[in-house]
Design a protein around this nucleic acid. Structure first.
Lengths: 240, 240
DNA sequence: CGTGTCGTTGAGGTCGCTCAACACCAGTGG
DNA sequence: CCACTGGTGTTGAGCGACCTCAACGACACG
């Protein structure tokens, strides 16, 4: 089960990006495997002491934040190659919950050792900051979606972005197997589940998607872009 | 105009936190002052090449993201001691706009030199990650507000949080001098300006605030907490 | 088959948006 | 001194996108 970073398919997306072969071996010595988590199991909980960053190796996770009134806000969904836990670096306590959406496995990267190692490897140091920064950029886009977009655009933007992430993982970008429930998706989008359900129906009627429970096929990328509020340049709107 | 980090009042909040006196001098050699910006002037624009992180020294800034349809989303407001530019570390290009809300000054911290210096100073390295992580935590809270809170709660949460930041800066926490326009505030909260205006009126009628244009006085902190959706423990709601 | 979870659909209500008018203030120029 | 202007903030009326509530259908699991 334990494999080396070198042999890992996620190599280029992950921490090892842009470090040498020698250094890769040292990193391998730090990274620990972890027994797979089942659907619904927590990787860590808000308030827990921070020790490690986690890299999704297979499956998927959601991170959530609890309001003081007990509701949850889904902050993000995390696919293989993505790193979870950066919010905990601020004061060594996890600030959100991370939960497996399906049977999933992670690499456990003890931060103290990683930081120690990074001090001598500028490339790794840089990559760490880069990934933390990407988290910020991702959140900013999420914020823009929540603040300025209406329901239809939100779902379209989400599907497009998920498709893009699938492409980066060398999965078919038009065949989305949603790991999250409608409820979790709606929550992430700042909507209620009924609205999302109606949108899937509408998108199917428009010939943009083929929906079968959690299997979504994107039929018309150009129109999906339009629905996302980004009129594709090569396809003029019929109104003009 | 140019002052040292050592003499700076923001010392403890900023990058120098938890580094030694010697190291502080080295940091001083890196940091460059910059001529003050007037209200409306941009510190950097989205798409610009990233060279420096900026620390707000006086005044205040907003960061914004532009949608593809040309609208803006305000991502955050930045008070003295706060650091702007972390979103640019992902690929050395600024991913948002930063604009002065009033006459303001910043410290310019060239990142290449900072990173170089940080390699030999574990405390600084750690502090850099800490601040980046705080940015993530802040965005997560903003997201929760946008996703799960209604208008009244949003404004109350914002005012409470601003008051807290004032307290950290040793300013009176009940006397808020809002540097942003109603429009910018509404945008940040994911609302329209009319809604925010009505809320200020309502909060004043409720005896929670005293509002005079951009000068806001918090009259009743406990009730503001209630409006923020956090029933204060020592003050039971009159309904029970 | 019953039970529970999840997703879909319908009917009705409401919070916040849209649109429009007006108040307030500062700056400008006669 | 006042009129004029533009920017900013407030208020009112009406509407609509999304939420709420409720029922039902589909599927998994015992």
């Amino acid at each position: 089960m334990r494999r080396t970073c070198r042999a890992c398919a996620l190599h280029a997306l992950c921490l090892p990006a842009s470090i040498s072969a020698d250094e890769l071996n040292s990193l391998d010595a730090i990274v620990r495997a972890r027994r797979p988590l089942d659907r619904g199991q927590q990787l860590f909980a808000s308030g827990a002491r921070f020790q490690s960053l986690y890299v999704v190796r297979s499956g998927s996770f959601k991170t959530t934040l609890e309001t003081n009134s007990g509701e949850q806000q889904v902050l993000g969904f995390h696919l293989p190659g993505e790193i979870i836990g950066f919010d905990a670096l601020s004061d060594d306590v996890h600030r959100c919950n991370a939960e497996a959406l399906e049977r999933s496995s992670v690499c456990d990267v003890p931060f103290a050792q990683l930081d120690e190692f990074a001090s001598s490897v500028p490339g790794l140091r840089r990559q760490l900051m880069r990934i933390a920064s990407r988290e910020v950029v991702k959140d900013h886009e999420h914020l823009m979606m929540m603040g300025r977009k209406q329901a239809q655009e939100r779902l379209a933007i989400f599907l497009r972005s998920l498709s893009e992430r699938y492409r980066n993982l060398h999965r078919a970008p038009d065949l989305l197997e949603l790991p999250m429930s409608r409820h979790e998706l709606a929550n992430y989008l700042g909507l209620v589940v009924e609205t999302v359900s109606r949108l899937f129906t509408r998108f199917e009627e428009l010939g943009v998607l083929a929906v079968n429970r959690k299997q979504i096929r994107i039929v018309d990328f150009a129109r999906l872009d339009e629905l996302a509020g980004e009129p594709s340049p090569n396809l003029e709107s019929e109104a003009c």
